[in-house]
Structure formats: structure tokens, C-alpha cells
């Protein structure tokens, strides 16, 4: 095939691919179609109207770990939420226990023996990151968001609320030997299940006075 015709074919293919690959719009038209999203307001609203009322549905952590040991699939099916089909899934949990250690980054708690199972867990008090709380609730639908940045910003704002409102009053008072009650989110890997080092991202924390 002569070179000019070959190059012409290359150009035609590239133009065809490009034409079917991208489209152009005015940015202000796109922005107008999607009003500026206020992630902080959304997170606050979600916290007050959905997350806090939904805490009553949180599963008892001791009972959950007991079920995970005997009926793993059923436990994941009944109590976990996640986006997509990966092995990482999130649970909204609650529990009580005795504080065994207080460090800069976390508070270690020995769960109260509920008769079904007991164990040690860690309540994060410094590094509150990730999507555990947002996804564990199962009450935010990703399809309601026009772009993933907004969706991710909701998570960041929820974590900010935890860092700003939930952790400070607890962290300033908690000490070894205290009896605490908690609600929070945990992340478990369905394929590589580890139940001996569970970290809780707290949603509510109370120190129970004797």
C-alpha cells in the first residue's frame, strides 16, 4: 500500500476514535446542571437524620464475632454493607467493655462478655480516615451523586464530624478501667477474615459512670 494512503488511513482511524471518545461542553452549562454540592451540609444532614437514628439497628459486636466464627457468609449477608463486589465490607456495630489501655492513637477495650463471645477491640481516636462509617450505614446510594468526588467528600466530612465532635470529649476523659459504650463502624475482609484485631471508627462514645 502506498505510504500516503497508509498515513491517510491512520489519520482516519485516529479521527474516528477521537470523535467517539470525547465530547465537549461549556463548563458553566455542566456546572449549572449540577448545583454546587455542599458535602459538609450533606454529611451533617446524614448524621442527624439517618446515621444517628439508624444506630439502633447496629449489631452487637460480641454477637457478630460469634456469628462470624460459625456462619461467616450469613453474618456478612445479614449485617454488612459495601460498594461493589469486593471482599472488604463494613458493619455498623455497638458494644460495651472495659478500657484496658489508652494511647495517643487509640483506646483498647475488652468487650463485656455477652455470653456469646468476648474479645479485645481498638477504638480509633486519632486516625479517622476511610469510608467505613459512610458505607457501613448502607444508607447512602452512590447513584445519587453526579460524581465520585462529591461522594468521597461526604466521607471526608463525616470523618471530620467524628474527629471534631465524637472523639475530643471522650478522649479527654477516658482512662484505663473505665466502662465504655460505643457505636461505630468496622471493616472486615470476607476472604481474609481477622477477628482478633478489630478497629472501630466511632460514631458515638459514652463513658458509663458507676
Amino acid at each position: 500500500m502506498p505510504k500516503p494512503i497508509r498515513y491517510l488511513l491512520y489519520v482516519a482511524v485516529i479521527v474516528l476514535l477521537a470523535y467517539n471518545s470525547v465530547y465537549f461542553k461549556k463548563l458553566d452549562e455542566v456546572k449549572a446542571g449540577t448545583a454546587a454540592f455542599d458535602a459538609a451540609a450533606y454529611a451533617k444532614d446524614f448524621w442527624e437524620k439517618k446515621l444517628t437514628p439508624g444506630l439502633s439497628k447496629a449489631v452487637e459486636l460480641g454477637a457478630l464475632t460469634a456469628q462470624l466464627k460459625t456462619e461467616k457468609d450469613k453474618a456478612f449477608e445479614q449485617h454488612s454493607h459495601a460498594l461493589g463486589i469486593g471482599n472488604i465490607r463494613y458493619f455498623l456495630v455497638k458494644g460495651q467493655g472495659i478500657v484496658t489501655d489508652v494511647s495517643e492513637n487509640e483506646v483498647s477495650v475488652k468487650l463485656a462478655d455477652t455470653g456469646e463471645s468476648s474479645g479485645n477491640v481498638r477504638i480509633a481516636t486519632e486516625y479517622i480516615f476511610g469510608n467505613a462509617v459512610r458505607d457501613a450505614s448502607g444508607q447512602i446510594d452512590i447513584n445519587a451523586f453526579t460524581n465520585s468526588m462529591d461522594f468521597n467528600n461526604v466521607s471526608a466530612e463525616i470523618n471530620k464530624l467524628i474527629r471534631g465532635k465524637v472523639v475530643p470529649p471522650f478522649k479527654s476523659e477516658v482512662k484505663k478501667g473505665d466502662r465504655v459504650a460505643f457505636h461505630g463502624a468496622i471493616e472486615l475482609n470476607r476472604e481474609h477474615l481477622q477477628l482478633n484485631n478489630i478497629e472501630i471508627i466511632p460514631v458515638s462514645l459514652q463513658i458509663e459512670k458507676p
Partner: peptide, 15 residues
């Protein structure tokens, strides 16, 4: 998004 040109470039699945 290219704010300076007031331009939004969207991508199809192929793109």
C-alpha cells in the same frame, strides 16, 4: 474541567 477556557471534556466509555 478547564475553567480558564470554560471547557468541559467528557469521555465516553471508549474514550
Amino acid at each position: 474541567e478547564i475553567p480558564s477556557q470554560n471547557l468541559y471534556i467528557g469521555f465516553t466509555v471508549l474514550g
